[in-house]
């Protein structure tokens, strides 16, 4: 931990500094010039900017987030999707059924998606009552269309969303190291679901790497140490930072 870093708890003052943080912000403005941290975390104070990496925070779904969830229910015009947030998502039928005209009386939803199916989707809308509207259609370049809609034959890992920035690493450095070591398809969704398609041996290795990252979230030079453990040379991986499938970068 360098000199500009400081562990903060809720209510601890961080002064009047331009704030740069994730989600709805990890600071609370008491009054002009007085702001406090709302979370336990590490505050990185530099150049009159502050970045708080919280120990844990509540994942608040945002428009454009890529999420993975399970179909857990039907509505007359679509599916209810459990995405591990505090509220379930809704995937409208006409988003999935495109070639024919959707008529709730005639169409059997099971033909498209069934209870228990795993789906990748993008959050299309979140209203102020926390209703989440999902879509499996995206025009965004950084979303691999193969990762939208029904997903099959994947191993699944769920991590706390707070840990994702560390798992991805600065400019995607960490995930790039992991992908170098582990063959196969790794998908990271912003709701903390990580999918892997490949051998079971590799899946077990992936899981243990993730466990180390989670356990030592605040270790300095963690990326380097993981690389060392996996026997990967760092200088290659730091080139061309990647942004993995729309997942937020660490910065």
């Amino acid at each position: 931990m360098n000199r500009n870093e400081k562990i903060v708890i809720p209510g601890e003052g961080i002064g009047n500094i331009h704030y740069k943080g994730r989600e709805e912000g990890f600071i609370y403005k008491i009054k002009r010039g007085v702001s406090v941290s709302t979370h336990l975390g590490v505050a990185n104070i530099s150049n009159k900017r502050i970045d708080i990496i919280p120990y844990k925070y509540i994942y608040v779904p945002k428009i454009g987030d890529y999420v993975i969830g399970f179909i857990v229910g039907y509505a007359p015009n679509g599916w209810i999707v459990e995405i591990g947030s505090y509220v379930k998502g809704f995937l409208p039928a006409n988003d999935v059924i495109k070639n024919e005209k959707f008529d709730p009386k005639k169409v059997d939803l099971d033909k498209y998606l069934k209870l228990g199916d795993l789906v990748g989707a993008i959050i299309q809308d979140v209203n102020k009552f926390s209703n989440i509207l999902l879509t499996i259609n995206s025009s965004k370049e950084n979303i691999n269309t193969k990762h939208l809609g029904k997903l099959t034959n994947y191993f699944i890992i769920k991590v706390h969303t707070t840990k994702l920035p560390r798992i991805i690493g600065k400019k995607g450095s960490m995930i790039k190291i992991i992908k170098k070591k582990i063959d196969g398809d790794i998908i990271i969704a912003q709701n903390g679901v990580i999918l892997y398609k490949g051998s079971y041996e590799n899946f077990k290795l992936l899981k243990s790497i993730l466990q180390i990252i989670i356990k030592y979230t605040y270790a300095s030079g963690l990326t380097g140490k993981i690389a060392e453990m996996l026997g990967i040379k760092l200088n290659e991986t730091y080139e061309n930072g990647i942004n993995d499938k729309g997942v937020e970068k660490d910065e």
Binding site: M1, I7, I9, L40, G41, V42, Y55, I212, K215, Y216, T217, Y218, A219, S220, L222, K225, M229
Partner: peptide, 16 residues
């Protein structure tokens, strides 16, 4: 008690 949680997550070398 709270800061200990983070301190614990920093000591990679000792444990590895």
């Amino acid at each position: 008690a709270l800061k200990d949680l983070i301190e614990k997550m920093k000591e990679l070398e000792g444990e590895s």
